[in-house]
Design a protein around this nucleic acid. Structure first.
Lengths: 191, 191, 191, 191
DNA sequence: CATGAATGAGAATTCATTCAT
DNA sequence: CATGAATGAATTCTCATTCAT
């Protein structure tokens, strides 16, 4: 019973992810979502109050999943570079293994799909990384610049890989991931 | 007559830019574009075959403007770093001075607003930068990695600044621009 | 058990009255009725065959209550004017004391909310008043006109007071009730 | 051109009148209105901003028509009784000759179909009658009671006739109209 | 009897596009 | 070329009713 409940909810989230990441928010009618989730159109509204709520919920869910993956194995006592490296590879691993999710997040980042309040809420999940950067700055390992800049050079580029990969123009090999991390690290470190 | 022609066409492009960058592609009805351009709805179809064509045209136009700005003062004989620096600051200067255009481009980058073919077409405008990178690689100044990686770390982060700025969370000072360039350069250089 | 039965039925009727008199028939979803009655949506259909039946039943119930109140203390042997006066004040007393019921009846009177057959059925409850009028006509105290006219001037105006009161434009004082009765009586009497 | 404009607008108003007076506001979908007006569904929104606006407009239009009819031939210098009589017969004449309009008004009177603001607006059309009553009170011909009471006994009963007639239970003959006026006059006069 | 999730037939409204003037 | 009313398909969302548990 509870399972069935959860089942339909996640079927809906999953269908939404599929469709939005492939065709974009506004080219994804509720009817299609319902169909793909094998559910009646009206049923959606038993789980989400409207389309915005559905997408917001999906965003929060994925952001949560992503952040969990990102901090897998991370401990606060780690040396800064080791921590940054772990998180960075966790992130790219998640994005490479979950292209739909990655694409969805990427779409949300640069658009007004997701409610402002929800996006803000999701931002707080990154706090451990911000803390780590701050420690790195204290240890003079990481450049003493705004976290926005650090984010722009250490995290944001990942979105580009995914967006490009979507269009089959590019495949990110293991070796390239290594290079990519080195570039990210060079950008943000003082050394 | 030709002038009037051009006038209406650019009025339409300008109106589209205004509305799309503020409200997104799908929240911008043709009727509003027409109104803002002070033109009848039907008239749009004398200049563009449909909404997609209108947006594609706008994208090409802006991308062209942006690339022109980016290569302002650039000459092929320049030393690599000097060239990269010039282009980078040109780019950020354009984006800071033209927030609507920057926002529009940013929206197009990670979505399916613009036709795939058109986006590809626009990519070729960057050829001089790709050439410069290639020269930099030959001179062993720039990392020997895929241009996608170079792009991801040297150009793509600019979009983040704009997207964030749009939401009033952040203002990019002159000093930060300096830091930012240093980070970009550190990412892509071998030194 | 029977009590519980009756309990739920009247809880449903009461909830319907509340909601319909406040928001109108078509702005009152079954789900809300169920919620207010503290009952599951499906349960309604154990007591009423559909929404129409529910509202029809409510109408009959209230009309019954209203008529009972109207004839409270009335005896067939009463002098005509006394009888008319008693009934008239009973009616207005009921409507003033039960604004929700009054409003509901008023809404039903001029619309297609209630089935035609049910409305006809309810009309018969007024028979004693019709008889009284007839006696009054025999005694040449009451105008020799169609009972429809008598109704229009002696009973129908009450609905107006309620409808107006609903909109807070008007409060019917004791003195006004007196005047109002005098007006009603003047309309229908021969004297 | 202008005619066509007006034509469609009035065709829509007329269709709305037909359908709402027959089936009620909430049983009258926009699609049916469009069909009856021989117009596409979307066209409605070129003339009215939404369903509420359409009905409000219709109400104002009819109320206007009704009031014009009511004051036909009326002059402020008329003796009070003559004036009241003229207006009263004008009103009933209008309602008898225009049953759909009468029914529509009657439905609006006791429900929340029409916006409160619009109803208030329409009320002002009756001002000449209120003025006449006031004069009658000054001359001590008309009872010194709230205009609400006067309205309830002199105007409101007309709605009942129409509502009843709608259900084919009753036909209002010329003679009955005479009686009816006498009743109304008896109700409101001091004599 | 009671539940409440599921259904799916509409309902109001929007909007890109056409075409007669 | 310019106009803008007209179109009608598509979209989001509601709600009376059913039925498996």
């Amino acid at each position: 019973m509870t399972d069935k409940n959860t089942d339909k909810r996640s079927a809906l989230l999953s269908a939404t992810l599929d469709l939005v990441s492939n065709h974009g928010f506004h080219n994804t009618p509720m009817a299609k979502i319902a169909k793909l989730a094998d559910v009646s159109a009206g049923t959606i509204y038993n789980y989400f109050s409207n389309k915005q709520d559905l997408v917001d919920s999906l965003y929060l869910h994925i952001k949560d999943e992503f952040t969990n993956a990102a901090f897998q194995g991370y401990e606060e006592e780690m040396p800064v570079k080791e921590g940054v490296k772990l998180i960075w590879f966790n992130m790219i691993e998640y994005k490479v293994s979950n292209p739909k999710q990655a694409n969805f997040l990427s779409q949300c980042e640069n658009s007004q799909i997701v409610s402002a309040s929800v996006r803000e809420q999701a931002l707080q999940h990154l706090q451990p990384l911000l803390d780590l950067w701050e420690r790195g700055q204290a240890e003079e390992i990481i450049r003493d610049v705004s976290p926005y800049l650090l984010y722009a050079y250490a995290v944001y580029p990942l979105s580009f890989f995914v967006a490009v990969k979507k269009r089959d123009e590019f495949h990110l090999t293991q070796e390239m991931q290594q290079h990519s991390f080195e570039m990210a690290w060079s950008a943000i470190t003082t050394k």
